[in-house]
Design a protein around this nucleic acid. Sequence first.
DNA 1: CCACTTTCGAGAGCAGTGCTCTCGTCCGCC
DNA 2: GGCGGACGAGAGCACTGCTCTCGAAAGTGG
Lengths: 242, 242
Amino acid sequence: MVRQARNARERARGELTAAIKDEARRQLAAEGASRLSLRAVAREVGMVSSALYRYFPSRDELLTALIIDAYDAVGAAAERALAEAEQAGEPFGARWLAVCRTVRAWALDHPHEYALLYGTPVPGYAAPQTTTGPASRMPSALLRIVRDAHAAGELREPVSGGPAPTEELLAQAEQLAVLLEIAVPAAATVEVLIAWAQLSGLVSFELFGQFHGVVDARDALFDHAAAGLATRVGLAPSPGVR
Amino acid sequence: MVRQARNARERARGELTAAIKDEARRQLAAEGASRLSLRAVAREVGMVSSALYRYFPSRDELLTALIIDAYDAVGAAAERALAEAEQAGEPFGARWLAVCRTVRAWALDHPHEYALLYGTPVPGYAAPQTTTGPASRMPSALLRIVRDAHAAGELREPVSGGPAPTEELLAQAEQLAVLLEIAVPAAATVEVLIAWAQLSGLVSFELFGQFHGVVDARDALFDHAAAGLATRVGLAPSPGVR
DNA sequence: CCACTTTCGAGAGCAGTGCTCTCGTCCGCC
DNA sequence: GGCGGACGAGAGCACTGCTCTCGAAAGTGG
């Protein structure tokens, strides 16, 4: 009974916290992070602005919560796409492409949330440790494809061009692979890391209007680029897919 | 004399406009675009905020002016790096690397200005036509390297992997090359376009803290990635450079 | 069952923002 | 030399994030 009572309070708190986050996400999706207003959120959930501070100590904390959710959302989408591609018995190159396409699709569906993750960070903001886990889900999915290809003996040498990565870089890649518990040759990890950043560059350009008036055939451009990335990291190109 | 008098006024206006832009750029560099405050700028140049509207009709217009300047600054840096590499008789791959490195260095030196160009756009903002010219300077420099390599008969087939670009994409690339007056095979243009976006992804990741706690050897990572891009667009890897 | 503590929401208020409007003033042109 | 347009200042509007105080609930221990 005592626990009941305590739970009532806590449940109310949990529900309100969720309501605030939902409304905040709504505003984020509609207007972008910079226009997310604490007061407007409070108004919408039927509180006065100061009351909201009982749930989130600052605007940045609210944003952090949204960031974590967004990382989880892209990560989950990527993992789902990968799982489906695996179950369909797709070759590794096709799995890579599937994940890339899914990430892009998510970004186009949630532009402001994607911008929150991979765009300009809010000024005084330093990502707390709690974000790193969710943040790594998407790149981890990419890395796992490479790992599986390697395990299956189908990973080719990375087509990177130029001099081989430095020892320092390989050591860090090794360390990273250990941290993520994904056993991959260090050289391949380096290439995936680079591909991850480059993938984000492609999506950001599209999202942030850099291709506006320059490229219309964005689907084709992206697919071509993503296939190129697959080749670069050592996954055989997937001939049939288009 | 009359012209003198008219010039006196116009010169005063020009000087004040410049002073405002300088102070705005200072604040931008120090604090980032989101913390750039019209009132603070006005205060610093010794005006009241409303007077500033005689010079810039809105905060967005001021930002636009800064954006154009910033595009010109990266563009100029890239062009300078390319010219130097050309005069030094560097091979095409090395020229590519030099431009990439310069762009990255500029970005690391001017993080907030770079973010203004390639990061999250300000919410209601649509880049006016006047920005497209300066914006194309940097990618044009990259494209010219490829053109020159092609003209010299040293451009290899792009190492893109996957299916060839669609007809639609190639047509657009052709069109773009004509617009920029840089005669390059369409397939190569496509690869440069992709490389441009990917380059920006690499720089953004570094700038926006995505590599924080993940990669320390960022110089090595970037050089390796940039060399890879050179290979991808068909420029022979530059063996001696490191 | 009754005190006591914690939790919560509301209100007022502070310092700041972008932007508008009005009102004198001074500069430069006819 | 007068007149129109450019200009700077000031007040004001509707916002923002955030703090502090205060009264009312809700939950806890005796």
